[in-house]
Design a protein around this nucleic acid. Structure first.
Lengths: 391, 391
DNA sequence: ATATTTTGTAAGTTTAATAAACAAATTAAA
DNA sequence: TTTAATTTGTTTATTAAACTTACAAAATAT
């Protein structure tokens, strides 16, 4: 049972302070006091702890029009590092970031064998390599988050991964035994949503991220938290039935959305006529430019069914921001306008629908961000995007 | 910005204590200490406050096998009263309950005029009547919650009510001005869900309540809290598209679920052939008993489309318990078994689907329960059901 | 040089928890 | 019948972390 005591208060306020320091990049004690409504004395005491822990550093003095110059505080980005891993089909992507979420290295390792044990070994040896690489810093490796393209339970066990045909495996435990430290598992779409919130959409607490690749995934940040459902399986929108009695699906039903609006299904439709090509996306791009009738029709249908599903999702969740992550959609001119045009119900409410600016990277970036969020105990993070950094 | 201080701790622990007292009915300080993990000293101090405020009373002494007899504590049910109002089509239902959620009176007032001002007056005069009736008790009327069969925003303004064709009206403000005290508005399906959680399903924090009447509503308690979405409009599942290009709906789309699985639509289908009858439900019940082919087919289709929608809802929310509130469904033999049979996807996860044991009353009961929950500052309530009381 | 403003720290107070000891009330055992 | 054991509830002292108030430091404006 969760009860309150003094240390609980301290944690709450500490998280608040770290959150603001990260959001602002650099900020004085006085301004922290103004923003959080905590007294300057309280801020000073908390900051003293953070300085001693080397999580925060005092940087330069700012120039004010009048009065004493404030001492600016920043997160000590190099105090530790977070490792995000995207375990995708055919390859695993590793991203190491500093504590501000800034990527240090990115590496893609092909997955040759799909045997479970081999994959555990591949991941474990890479993790150990990264761990020794970070060992010099104050906190070393502060967290490891692994993106799973499948169902992950609230207890972080894997319920089902279509690509590898894994069912009820405890990858977390197996990896932790192999590397000797905590590893966290999270659904890929959830991590993409987390990344969109952390790196791009700082002002919303209600964001959905729809990922359209081999299947359709839905990552949800609602009320500033992951929306997971009772067991962790919420957001399985790919298997929402949109065509009663429609195409049979591996899940056991007919007419699942995935069969009509995932990239795989659209590509299959298009390539059914034409003989298969190696670089599918390139090929489609050329056909669009050429004005190919058949491709045009297929993409029209794609947008049509995509809009139907989006209508349903929006009605159910009433999100603030919907981010769509799809390479295929990006190639269709005016795709967003066409979707907006289809969402004409009196009932659907949302503020913004956009295409992801991060694309496939969002998944590993979200994994790093989540590792940082866990380490610092700050649930709602705001990290500088690449654009901010360029300033 | 929400910061922590000492009084915040006290509130947390106080809510915890009240919650346990209500859940257990009567309990000693020592047992409260064991359950909450707060020390006996802390419990004593908090209980002293509650006794002084007359929210809690010391009742009899319990008999123990050994040791000093504990003093049992109970909620002072008559310290105040909650008023729930269900503003439905054609009539308003008023329920007055004590602080344990036990109904004191229920009253149904027909709505003659559907003009906004008249309805405000009707509600206001009834509220004043109930207020003076409670004036004798320690806290009098502790809260008033009004169930709205339509879209209610997070700011408790009405976005849309189909029945009265209200759009963007501030009923809360108008009523509060008329009666001089706070009034709270909440969507009817949310209140039904709250009632199911508070009165019946005490052990779950993830409950969905699907109400099938004129339209289809979805009330959601997820993670122990209402799930409202960004503006408060989440759960509009009636306008989920399940038949692309299907029947046109007033919302502007085609093929909305409501057109296939609401009681209204099913009744319309059945009665289209047969000339309209006053007591529709009775009539249908007789036809089912007679084995009428046409009614049988229509109900089969109802169950079919209902299951499709439930599949979609379950995939999206991964609830623990789903409660369906439908008079029509109750009349169909083996309805639940047939629904279970249709939900055969590998992906759908839920623990339990049941028919509501409260039926239409759930809405006002939820309104009373919510008023109590707000007054006592206890978000997750457990109230005795009628069955418990009979013990 | 002095007043004003802003920042950050220090000393003392308040709140609400915890810990430890104790009083009260009961049954079981000597 | 007295004593030991057990459980309940209260009292006193301690602790943590906030808050208030006062003040020193550092800057600009007069």
């Amino acid at each position: 049972m969760v009860t309150g005591d003094a240390s609980y208060i301290k944690k709450i306020n500490r998280a608040l302070i770290i959150r603001e320091i990260m959001k602002e990049g650099k900020i004085s004690r006085a301004d922290l006091s103004k923003i959080t409504a905590l007294t300057r004395a309280t801020i000073s005491a908390q900051v003293a702890d953070l300085l001693e822990e080397e999580l925060v550093v005092e940087t330069e003095l700012e120039h004010n029009p009048v009065g004493r110059k404030p001492i600016m505080l920043s997160l000590n980005a190099q105090a530790g590092y977070a490792l995000g891993i995207d375990l995708d089909a055919g390859h695993a992507t590793f991203m190491l970031s500093d504590l501000t979420g800034h990527p240090v290295t990115t590496e893609i390792i092909p997955i040759q064998s799909e045997a479970y044990e081999d994959i555990v070994q591949l991941l474990a040896s890479a993790i150990r390599r990264y761990q020794s690489r970070c060992a010099g810093s104050r906190y070393g490796m502060v967290g490891i988050v692994l993106a799973i393209h499948g169902l992950v339970s609230n207890e972080e066990t894997i319920k089902f991964v279509p690509r590898f045909q894994w069912q009820d495996v405890d990858l977390k435990q197996d990896l932790e035994r192999a590397v000797g430290t905590a590893v966290h598992l999270e659904n890929n779409a959830n991590l993409s949503a987390f990344a969109e919130r952390a790196y791009a959409h700082h002002t919303t607490d209600n964001l959905l991220c729809v990922t359209l690749y081999s299947g359709i995934g839905l990552g949800m940040i609602m009320d500033g938290k992951f929306f997971r459902g009772h067991e962790g399986f919420a957001g399985e929108i790919g298997h929402m039935i949109v065509v009663p009695g429609g195409e049979p699906c591996a899940c056991g039903n007919r007419g699942c959305w995935e069969k009509y609006a995932s990239e795989t299904s659209v590509l299959r439709n298009i390539l059914a006529a034409e003989p298969g090509d190696a670089s599918d996306m390139e090929w489609i791009n050329r056909r669009i430019a050429e004005g190919d009738e058949q491709v045009h029709d297929a993409l029209n249908q794609f947008v049509y069914y995509l809009s139907i599903g989006l209508n349903n999702v929006i009605n159910m969740y009433n999100p603030d921001v919907v981010v769509i992550d799809s390479e295929l959609l990006r190639m269709i001119p005016d795709a967003l306008q066409r979707i907006h045009h289809q969402l004409h119900s009196q009932i659907s409410h949302y503020r913004e629908i956009t295409l992801s600016g991060m694309g496939r990277k969002s998944c590993v970036m979200g994994a790093c961000a989540l590792a940082i969020s866990r380490f610092l105990n700050v649930p709602v993070l705001s990290l500088p995007s690449g654009d901010d950094l360029a300033d």
